[in-house]
Design a protein around this nucleic acid. Structure first.
Lengths: 207, 207
DNA sequence: ACCTGTGAATAAGTTCACAGCA
DNA sequence: TGCTGTGAACTTATTCACAGGT
């Protein structure tokens, strides 16, 4: 199976497996079967095995997968084995929560810069990152920052994205509730925390 | 096409269309073609038409869709035409950002209660919501709250989910970075803001 | 006996191409 | 002419069932 195209859905699930493996690792597990991992992540064991089979033989028949090895393999596939610097744009309520969030490290992300337009915030130090004036956004180019997290108001979103593209960013995690137009040299993932909740009532079993 | 099963992917896209329609509406558009809407949401026009066709004939040939009507239809399908009360559990950095976030209203969600374990926070009023002691979580049952937003530390997540289930909640938007085990009478959507970023490097075109 | 890896079968979702109505 | 609605073709993804190591 190793030479065929990798399904997007498989790539989408890899970070979920990674999260499960880290959990298992914390519990002291050295080896894990697809059945065990399934319980950690809520995905069927045959789906897990199929997903891994696209990349190689990661497991041992009769035994399962080595937790540490599998973790490294997934990080390598996702290209997050080497930590990458990211810039945060917009340090409002949500931006502040993102800065304070401890979980980015395990996915190889290092929020190394933060920008805001509000003069009162500029110069403040949050979690070791000094908030800079958004007019300095262009500096990320020479600082080799290729990733950005956007947490700006919707009306500023497209403009901010344009600036980021100009500054050479290659990937954007967008928390503004809108679709962003960018050249196809840039990958955008949008998370609209309110919108994601909108489908809950549809799936809620009728009372 | 009206009588077949609705694809999950179609349901997932409906909130995106809704967001686009609200944008178009703000711009003063009364009618919109699938081509126009496609530009607002980044989804192909034929996909848009196909999605709507599962539910009925929402448009007019030669003209397009009436923005207001389509908005109402989508809200009705998603069962968010009548506003629903939701409880927020965990008012840390992220919880605070969620409380302050203005966007829930358009998806028919009203954060009507907030709970935290920290005595210093209890009693504080944020955006018109008074933070209550988490020990009072059970009260949401008689307050007819069927939806919850969880923004608690990972180690408390499963336990909190269990409490919510016991309190009669039917839908949970989970921001803790873990999979939650709940009975199938409850629908969970998990957003792991760090994890979602993990697939960016994979898709980033090589420099 | 146990658990992975995978071809084959099935299911789900997308895209096309155009009929049909305004 | 313009744009929707949709069957049919095509593509992608999931599930099964079991061969093949340990």
């Amino acid at each position: 199976m190793r030479y065929s195209r990798i399904p997007d859905e498989t790539i989408r699930r890899l970070p979920i497996y990674l999260r499960g493996l880290i959990l298992a690792s914390e519990q002291g597990q050295k080896n894990i079967s697809s059945n065990d991992l399934a319980e950690y992540v809520g995905i069927y064991p045959w789906q897990i095995r199929k997903d891994f089979s696209y990349f190689g033989d990661f497991g041992t028949r009769g035994v399962g997968y080595n937790v540490g090895k599998l973790e490294r393999e997934i990080k390598r596939i996702l290209k997050i084995n080497i930590s990458q610097k990211a810039a945060l744009v917009g340090v409002g309520n949500l931006g502040m929560a993102i800065l304070a969030f401890p979980g980015f490290g395990i996915y190889g992300l290092d929020i190394a810069a933060a920008f805001d337009i509000n003069p009162k915030k500029i110069g403040r130090n949050v979690k070791g990152v000094t908030i800079e004036n958004i007019s300095k956004l262009g500096t990320i180019k020479r600082r080799k920052i290729k990733l950005a997290v956007m947490a700006v108001p919707r009306k500023a979103a497209q403009e901010t994205a344009d600036e980021l593209v100009k500054a050479g960013v290659r990937g954007i995690l967008n928390f503004s509730p809108c679709y962003l137009l960018v050249p196809n040299t840039v990958k955008v993932i949008t998370i609209d925390i309110a919108m994601d909740m909108a489908s809950l009532p549809y799936y809620m079993p009728a009372s």
